[in-house]
Design a protein around this nucleic acid. Structure first.
Lengths: 165, 165
DNA sequence: GTATTTTCCATGGGATAGCATGGGATTAAA
DNA sequence: TTTAATCCCATGCTATCCCATGGAAAATAC
């Protein structure tokens, strides 16, 4: 899964190394999809073939006449770039996407479980502090899902993973 | 599959290069079909032999007396142009279709999974912002298919593509 | 614990093939 | 004969492929 953040930069040819841990999360495939984040965040969103397959299935479930289907299709498939990593795990991101995310030379890869995001460092820093503020102000709201998960036994055995030999 | 968007233009002879990634999506065939978008969008819609074969099967499933069959037949087969790419992957789009889509010289190829659309740049920009607006206002509506897909286990293993080693 | 080796990763850059584009030549239609 | 469509070749550009380098982390040996 896509975890952690990595700060890197574009080289003179406009290429960038996809962080190794993200490459592993991509499952060995060479294809990377990138599009402007669909939740409106001023960054790019990306994933591999597994994520795209999931989106494809989601589309297949929607009625062909559903107006939301067209919007969804457009947001993900029409606006995305289909990138191929070279043997060293680098991709070159189209100019239009770089502009949309406000990226000049430096950029941040941010893991998000089943996908990742690509930010300009400045925007990421701003987003980061917004998120911490929101987290602190909503501890109460977070309690509910945690408690529900606990009640469901989701954490069973988690406290003693394998360390006690 | 047809992904991403490409902006190009007609040359002095009225030809246009089909984007390379679309040619690959066409599966190596030389034939391209184009017709006015059947959902009423002010653009052209196109695909390859695979898509036409699918439509053919759809027609075969409909009752010969079904009035929708006639409309469907007309929309796709009667109104479509059967274009042949030259060795460099170019086609020339009939004037009537260009007029219908409001295309002068510049145009946009937009991928839509199993087909693609051809827009005038102005109309595409307008459509693009309409779609983003709609996406943001219908996040709730999108929840439904997502939840359905999740319930069906579409995400099983997605967050852990190659296993957590 | 320290030193040495091995592996993996990020980065730079040269060579090459594929792509978009322009235009001449040939063939077919009016 | 004129007009237009098709075929074919030429060109610059860009993306891709490939190899090389330096360094960090991990594994092994001392």
């Amino acid at each position: 899964m896509f975890v952690s953040t990595h700060e890197t930069s574009l080289d003179s040819k406009g290429r960038v190394s996809v962080p190794a841990s993200f490459r592993h999360a991509l499952g060995g495939g060479q294809r990377v999809f990138l599009w402007p984040a669909s939740d409106g965040s001023p960054c790019l969103e990306g994933g591999g073939e597994a994520l795209m397959k999931f989106y494809q299935q989601t589309l297949a479930r929607m009625s062909p006449n559903d107006p939301a289907r067209r919007a969804f299709m457009h947001a993900i498939f029409t606006r995305s770039a289909d990138l191929k990593m070279d043997d060293n795990g680098r991709v070159s991101i189209p100019k239009s996407l770089l502009e949309a995310a406000g990226i000049e030379r430096e950029l941040v890869f941010a893991g998000a479980l089943d996908r990742f995001h690509v930010w300009s460092p400045e925007r990421f820093a701003a987003f980061d502090s917004t998120m911490s503020a929101q987290l602190h102000s909503s501890q109460g709201a977070l309690e509910a899902p945690f408690q529900a998960a606990l009640a469901a036994g989701a954490l069973a055995g988690l406290a003693t993973p394998e360390g006690d030999k």
